[in-house]
Design a binder for these strands. Structure first.
Lengths: 343, 343
DNA sequence: AGCAATTACGAAACCGATTTCGTGTTAAAA
DNA sequence: TTTTAACACGAAATCGGTTTCGTAATTGCT
């Protein structure tokens, strides 16, 4: 059960003090060349590596960034993480990832776990439950202890911190506008409950695009899915109610690719041709869209970029390179044309 | 720039020693009720939380599990992580995730980072490069320092540790056998280069199924994709060479869902009807298969289960509940029938 | 030769906790 | 009245490092 060798072991074996060992290993001028050589050789031989906990405690700096996300089996979030990881590593940071599972309690627990000295800063995307019950007191404590943190994607305006979001409203606006201008007369919206802010923003874009064209949005064309993303059957059933009607919509804008893909499935079963009878656009960073048939036109949201920028914002804060005021950065979207809309 | 309150602050403010504070907060019988009350009230008021680095250093126990995976934007691996996270949390552990990006150097770096006291144990899936160059010396050091670790999915037999794998060969065998028994005469295999062990095992299953039926596998029906998974176009081009020929295959077994989905795309473009003219089976834990059209029949590999079991194996090691010998657990697969094969 | 400067190292404080051991005070037992 | 035990707390060691400061021995300068 031998464990990793420590500086004390080296000191004892070579009959010098721990200070001498420490300095020798850092090539300090205070130590003679001969002693340094001896110590370095010994340390090398036994593969000495300083204990990182001890260093972190001493330096009051962990070089670790904590990430709290609602779920990890999620293409968008995993891209964000990938971007974070990239930038973090470039700056010598590691990442510690916690999953809130869309639960307020777990989010709170995670924050408490990570905020006790384990990390230098936090990157957080709010859980659905947190957005629903609107309780943000766990962030007050972060602010009190002035631990830097950045909210990304699922944010809350009233929290005083740096934020980074997708241009949800703009993306939805352009997608809807595109459908309107292609001649769609009945464009349905498949969205989330209102407490999911990104869904709400996208709905806003959908509405504004209609207003811009002087069209009144029929409430019957808007459905809110209050089901777990894993429960495809339940979502499917809700969408069916939208499409299996006398005069089905001739356009659909869905706030994520899952809804869009399921809408496409339902449409095909209803006998509608895509895109001739009904045009569909999703919102996503995903792969369902690419491989569904017909391939889905989507609002591409660039999660990798968001992750990179979020990490940069946070590291700037941690290293005090940021100016005083908190920023909110908006990542713009692209409309990616595929087969589910007419050329 | 006030920072988190420490036990020393409390001791100073209340004119007691740090030992008294520590004991009081742990409700020790050594401390009088009145003093305990006073200290607890003070600590509560200032939201005192012990510094976790100090605890970890003191206890020589981090309650953190390190995970090293080749990539994170990957449905299978994210499911594995999800399973790990679940079990780890149940046992009071957190997870720290590092990505090797399929690079040997980064894998080595990650291991060194995590093995210096940051974690109690490691869960590792080998990078492609590591499998290619077959250099496993970084694991020797883990063994020397006896830091528990478990290899999952992409493993190496010669490393002396616990391992957990998918029944790649068995899954491939049953999938291929199914195609043969459905009457396919020319079943192509789309696989990875040989150094990717999971690809090789699946190839073995494919071959054995043929042998079982006394069929010789034509080398021309086996293609190895040596392209980055992100480079869909390049993969597409390789698959095209397989299918755009005079007598195309009437069955395809692909070692992952990306290859299967792309093969389906190519087949459709070649004018082949799926599943009437060509039947396709993929190997996966993913979502492309579900939403592609026709939906793909696949060998389901249960990443979530693998993650849970891997975490359990590791925690048993960490907490010395495992018996002495190293185990290799095999997670079995299911053939999930969808539209890309005849009923 | 006498004094200052340099060299080479060790002692001790520190990071933030826990825990063992020691001790002064008080109350109960002899 | 003396002994003893219980009580309540503090000093110090510990985890594994880094860093400041102090100092003995040597060297350099006048």
């Amino acid at each position: 059960m031998k464990s990793r060798i420590t500086i004390k072991d080296i000191a004892r074996e070579l009959s010098v003090s721990t200070s001498t060992v420490s300095k020798a290993l850092k090539d300090s001028h205070e130590i003679s060349e001969s002693t340094k050589a001896k110590i370095k050789a010994f340390a090398d031989f036994y593969h000495y590596k300083p204990n990182s906990l001890a260093l972190k405690l001493r330096n009051q700096k962990t070089q670790v960034i904590g990430i709290i996300i609602p779920e990890i089996v999620h293409h968008f979030f995993s891209r964000v993480i990938s971007g974070i990881e990239k930038v973090a590593n470039q700056h010598g940071y590691n990442v510690m990832i916690c999953v809130s599972n869309e639960s307020y309690d777990k989010e709170l627990l995670n924050i408490e776990m990570l905020a006790n000295g384990s990390v230098d800063g936090l990157l957080i995307s709010l859980s659905k439950e947190t957005q629903k019950i609107k309780d943000f007191k766990h962030f007050d404590e972060l602010i009190e202890n002035n631990l830097p943190f950045v909210l990304f994607d699922r944010i809350e305006k009233t929290i005083n911190c740096d934020k980074i979001i997708i241009d949800d409203e703009g993306g939805a606006y352009r997608a809807t506008k595109y459908l309107i201008e292609k001649g769609c007369k009945k464009i349905a919206l498949i969205t989330t409950p209102a407490y999911v802010t990104v869904g709400e923003s996208r709905k806003m874009g959908y509405i504004k695009a209609h207003q811009k064209h002087g069209i009144n949005v029929a409430e019957s064309l808007v459905i809110k899915i209050d089901k777990d993303d894993d429960d495809h059957d339940a979502i499917y059933a809700l969408i069916k109610k939208l499409i299996f009607v006398k005069n089905p919509p001739d356009g659909i804008f869905a706030v994520n690719e899952l809804y869009a893909a399921l809408a496409m499935k339902v449409s095909k079963e209803r006998g509608l041709r895509i895109p001739q009878d009904i045009e569909i656009i999703g919102f996503t960073d995903g792969i369902i869209s690419e491989f569904s048939s017909p391939a889905l036109t989507t609002v591409a949201q660039h999660g990798y970029t968001m992750g990179k920028h979020a990490a940069e914002m946070l590291i700037n804060r941690i290293e005090n390179k940021a100016n005083g005021n908190f920023q909110t950065e908006v990542i713009s979207t692209d409309l990616k044309f595929r087969e589910s809309t007419l050329n």
